[in-house]
Amino acid sequence: MRREIPMIVAFVAGVTIILEFFVPALRDVASQIQKWYLVVIAFAILVGAFNLLRINYMKIRYRRADWPYSFALIAGLFAMAIIGIGWGIKEGTVFDWLFNYLIFPMSSTVFALLAFFVASAAYRAFRARTVDATLLLVAAVVVMLGQVPIGSAWVPAWWPDSLVFLTPDWLKDRIMNIFNTAGQRAILIGASLGVVSTSLRILLGIERSYLGEE
């Protein structure tokens, strides 16, 4: 029964959600299932918080490597929880201040790293060692020139319409709207088929490894 019940739940919930797409009358039932899922998520947050506390507490207790970071994590977790529960989380509260001036800037800092990583990844990917990489490099340069004002600034006013296909703007539009869009759609079509196939395997109980069963 440990396997059968989750499989039955997965089957009933999955089939209902799929049918709801075609049968509007099932919308309320599907919406109810989604609400139950939200309730499960709400309780699961406690499981995650407990796991976080347990692992970091053990690190502090046995003075494992980098244990001060675990201490900072637990202190931060409790501080935010106590401040949030005690004084509320509305605008102007201490919680709000901590979020805006501590957590948000830290998140932004990590996000900002992306700019440097784009540069390093682009350097490796665009080294023109193969035909593929060269094509990638040329396409990227054209698209980048087409995206920025300076890319079209060199095109003089008298540039003939018959030669418009040589301007970065024109080329960028073609690369993005034709080649890039076609590629993305191909990926999405393939992925959609994969979703259908995976869903069927799960609903029919053929794929059970997500239940911890091979």
Partner: peptide, 26 residues
């Protein structure tokens, strides 16, 4: 299967499963 993230993975990783291959992997 996120088309917007695939170029990043292709540029930075050794192997990338594109879209449907992710669902076929198991």
């Amino acid at each position: 299967a996120m088309p917007s993230q695939l170029p990043f993975f292709i540029a930075a990783c050794d192997y990338t499963l594109i879209g449907e291959e992710l669902f076929a992997a198991s």
